[in-house]
Amino acid sequence: MSASQSDVPSAGACSACGAAVGGSLRCASCGALLPADESDAFSLLGVAPVFDLAADDLRRCWLARVRQVHPDRARSDEERMRSQRLAALLNDAYTALQDPISRADRLLNRSGGPDASIERGMDPLLLAESLEIREALSEAVSPESAATIRSDLAARLEEALIKVAEGARALPGDAEHRVALRRELNGATLLLRLMSQTEGGQERDVRHA
């Protein structure tokens, strides 16, 4: 996963953890849960909004935040309900930011880029090829031919992820750049879905946001 890349700019801002980016989720003096920006995974977890996040740092920030809000520490039913929700949001944000595709997706949305429901386009060549791949997959009878398709897909996905990473690092950029990144993301998502189809029909549903 690309989050383990070493050129980490500012996720370290949180390694002190009490003084995380965006502040704590719980008041240090009175212990009350503080309001949080639920729509932004980065500020929820207290990490810098950048593409290159080290997996270890991300995990440490997540654990520190979960510890702050964990329902086991709630002092009333009302607080328990709120902390359940907040903990669920933190877990969701952590899952999202671990994955390079959805990390880039969140960054793009944060930079005012077009949502996947608005910009649905992708590289026309890839779209055409994907139809061929799908056909080949349905005809692939031998395990060898399935494996060939699979390794071809894996190579394409790797390439697509490099482009996504480059695009995400250059955010916010101009409007054109953001549309281009959305199209790259759409292509990567399609490749991912094709990959999962080679894994014996166990297609992992796309998470509902």
């Binding site: 929700r85 669920a88 877990n91 969701d92 549903d205 509902h208």
Partner: peptide, 17 residues
């Protein structure tokens, strides 16, 4: 079945539909 939450997701977890 439209899956909202996948197995082995850390709890608490939520989905909105």
């Amino acid at each position: 079945v439209g899956k909202l939450i996948l197995r082995n997701t850390t709890i608490p977890c939520r989905a909105v539909e």
